[in-house]
């Protein structure tokens, strides 16, 4: 098992290199002109200024040279400088990634636990009103667009009821907790700042619920069908024949088997949300990777786009690895054969 993990880890950098190269090539194939992001429009007609800016940002070099420089820098952890923020992309990402991670982790916790709960209820009470109701709720989560549900929730809970604070990670005038992990709730807890913790948590709640709802939809459906399948298996009949009540058959026998395929989906959803939480971040002014990616692609900010691509790819590769390990751990047949 350890050897397998190490082998997989070794392949990750090579895969990332491939991803970076593809991202580079793709970004060069787009029609737009990154100068638009670098220069105010009225200066575009001045050839000297254009040449100077091109030289400054290396845009005057031939493609292979730019590729070589880009990859060379990448290997040293340098993702280049963003055209728009004019700061190192690595630094931008380091600041924004924790915000996204905090949001996505919270959404995953909420979404998967509610999803598993709903899956259990609807499998146990198949075709009952409870089943139909909870499945409807879960289905809404994965089909209602976030820009809609996000705005509605924001309107109801923040504007109308005033239960939830406004957008952003903290109230406008609050200072963030000391930077340990970059996730405000955890940093506040670690440094014992309870008021900051509660404030950060209350800011996190609504976006995490909205984003988590989409996860709920995916998870609940899979858990339900996976459970129903398990409940029809021979081992479930054996459990019943042993005298196990249906609750025990469900929780002790069907669930552990049913969760194995769910692990894969959870891993992929997590990786997807790292760059896919764009809308939630936009609506809740959450300074994460998703909103960074939107700005970057709107202004053809190649370095930033490349950086986000690499982060996204890393998330997928790591999630894949972790999922495989978890899968093997949950599935004794694989554990032993490796």
């Amino acid at each position: 098992m350890l050897r397998y993990v190490i082998k997989r880890m070794i392949t990750i950098p090579f895969l990332l290199l491939g991803v970076a190269s593809v991202a580079f090539v793709l970004s060069q194939m787009t029609k737009g002109d990154p100068l638009a992001a670098l220069l105010p429009e009225r200066m575009m007609s001045n050839p000297e200024v254009v040449a100077a800016v091109k030289a400054e940002w290396g845009l005057d070099q031939p493609l292979p040279v730019r590729y070589g420089i880009y990859i060379g820098n990448l290997l040293q952890g340098d993702m280049g400088t963003s055209f728009t923020t004019r700061r190192p992309v690595a630094q931008d990402i380091a600041e924004r990634l924790p915000a996204t991670l905090e949001l996505v982790i919270a959404a995953m916790i909420v979404g998967s636990s509610v999803g598993i709960g709903i899956g259990l209820l609807s499998a146990r009470f198949k075709n009952s009103a409870l089943d139909i109701g909870t499945r409807g709720f879960a289905l809404l989560g994965s089909s209602v667009p976030i820009f809609w549900s996000g705005l509605i929730f924001l309107y109801i809970f923040t504007v109308r009821l005033d239960w939830a604070p406004g957008t952003g990670r903290l109230d406008a005038r609050s200072t963030p907790p000391p930077d340990i992990t970059g996730m405000y709730t955890i940093d506040a807890l670690l440094s014992g700042q309870m008021t900051t913790f509660i404030e950060a948590l209350s800011h996190l709640l609504l976006p995490a619920l909205i984003l988590g709802w989409t996860v709920t939809g995916i998870v609940a459906r899979l858990v339900r069908s996976s459970l129903l399948d398990s409940l029809g298996q021979d081992y479930a009949r054996t459990a019943r024949a042993k005298g196990a009540p249906e609750r025990v058959v469900l929780l002790n026998h069907a669930l552990p088997n049913a969760l194995i395929p769910v692990l894969t989906i959870l891993g992929f959803t997590f990786a997807y949300l790292i760059t896919g939480a764009v809308l939630t971040e936009a609506i809740f002014s959450w300074p994460g990777i998703g909103s960074y990616a939107v700005t970057a692609s709107r202004s053809l900010d190649y370095p930033a786009i490349g950086g986000v691509t690499i982060v996204g790819a890393t998330a997928f590769l790591l999630a894949n690895l972790v999922t495989d390990i978890a899968y093997a751990w949950a599935n004794p047949k694989i554990k032993v054969s490796q």
């Binding site: 298996q233 021979d234 081992y235 009949r237 054996t238 459990a239 019943r240 024949a241 042993k242 005298g243 196990a244 009540p245 026998h253 552990p256 088997n257 194995i260 949950a330 599935n331 004794p332 047949k333």
Partner: peptide, 24 residues
């Protein structure tokens, strides 16, 4: 009947591989 199952009446099934729970 749950108290009879597995207590007073035992069962052996055809395919012992599928009849046991694979993850326990």
């Amino acid at each position: 009947i749950r108290h009879l199952r597995g207590k007073d009446i035992g069962c052996v099934f055809q395919d012992p591989l599928s009849a046991f729970n694979p993850v326990k």
